[in-house]
Amino acid sequence: MPTVKPDGTPFDIVKSEDDWKAVLSPTEYHVLREAGTERAFTGEYTDTKTAGTYTCRACDAVLFTSDTKFDSHCGWPSFWSPLAGESVILLEDRTMGMKRVEVRCASCGSHLGHVFEGEGYGTPTDQRYCINSVSIKLAPAE
Rank of each mutant, 00 (worst) to 15 (best):
T48S: 15
D18H: 08
G8D: 04
T123A: 08
G120R: 11
P2Q: 12
M98Y: 06
M1H: 07
L138A: 06
L63S: 11
F79H: 13
G52P: 14
D67T: 13
S66Q: 08
A40K: 14
V14W: 12
H73A: 15
G75T: 05
S78E: 04
W20D: 09
V23P: 06
S133H: 07
L24M: 14
R57D: 13
Q127Y: 03
R57K: 15
L138T: 00
R94L: 09
D12L: 02
C105T: 07
P2K: 12
F64R: 06
H114V: 00
P140T: 00
D67C: 03
H114C: 00
A40G: 14
E44G: 05
A40N: 10
S107P: 01
E119S: 01
H73Q: 15
L90Y: 14
V23L: 14
D126Y: 02
S78C: 15
G43N: 10
R57H: 14
K69R: 15
F79A: 10
W20E: 04
F41P: 11
R33D: 07
C108S: 09
V23T: 14
E86C: 05
E34Y: 04
D19G: 03
P10K: 06
R100E: 03
R33E: 03
V101Q: 14
S72Q: 07
P10T: 03
F70I: 07
P26R: 10
D19P: 05
N132T: 01
F11E: 01
D19L: 09
C74I: 02
D126V: 02
S16I: 01
E34A: 08
Y121G: 01
Y29G: 05
T46Q: 13
E92F: 03
C74Q: 07
G85Y: 04
M96K: 14
K21W: 04
A139M: 07
E28Y: 05
S87P: 10
S81E: 13
D71Y: 02
T95R: 13
T37F: 03
D19S: 14
W80Q: 06
S110Y: 05
D18C: 01
Y121I: 01
F79E: 07
Y45M: 10
V134E: 00
Y54R: 09
E38K: 12
S66G: 14
E38W: 08
K5G: 04
D47Y: 12
S66P: 13
G43P: 13
A58K: 12
T53W: 01
L83N: 15
V4T: 15
F11T: 05
P6R: 05
G75N: 07
D7K: 11
K69P: 11
Q127M: 12
S87H: 15
V88D: 08
T125A: 11
L63W: 02
